[in-house]
């Protein structure tokens, strides 16, 4: 039994959008007649971005502190090789098992904080228009917000 081959149906707009895939991303420019709501949306998006960046820096600092700190401790205290716990050297146990739970905690805290920042933001890009995710053919352009397609959700 052979199933019929699926045929893709696209709207004229989709075809137009896909045909200019290598043009610069004009769609990302703010509309020339941007009104107050547009400017407010941009300001809100900037605030979210700055908060997320601060959070990412914090997480990276924690990650570097853990990795370089743990290896640094093992480097400066060779005595840990001779202390044993359950028959295994403590330094080996720290290397083999110590970092994984901490890595998980750092990642978990980051994701929770990042989601809170997103929840606190009241402005959203609307996912709409032609794009690879709305059923268009093998598109490689991002699903782009059109002009004036953003607005308050809450």
């Amino acid at each position: 039994m052979t199933s019929p081959r699926r045929v893709r149906v696209t709207s004229p707009q989709t075809r137009i959008a896909l045909s200019r895939r290598h043009r610069p991303a004009q769609h990302l420019l703010p509309p020339p007649d941007g009104d107050a709501a547009d400017r407010r949306a941009d300001a809100e998006a900037r605030k979210v971005f700055v908060r997320q960046r601060r959070l990412a820096v914090r997480t990276l600092v924690l990650l570097i502190a853990l990795l370089f700190g743990l290896s640094g401790i093992l480097a400066v205290s060779p005595g840990l090789d001779r202390v044993t716990l359950f028959g295994a050297p403590v330094s080996w146990l720290m290397l083999m098992t110590g970092s994984y739970p901490v890595l998980l905690v750092i990642a978990f805290l980051h994701v929770r904080a990042a989601e809170r920042i997103e929840d606190g933001s009241s402005w959203h890009f609307r996912e709409s228009g032609p794009g690879p995710f709305s059923g268009g053919p093998a598109g490689d352009r991002p699903a782009a917000p059109g002009r004036g397609q953003r607005g308050a959700v809450r």
Partner: peptide, 14 residues
């Protein structure tokens, strides 16, 4: 459009 392109990456979709 660089700023818009960056902001879009951090702005939640609906």
């Amino acid at each position: 459009w660089a700023e818009r392109a960056v902001l879009r990456l951090h702005t939640p979709l609906r």
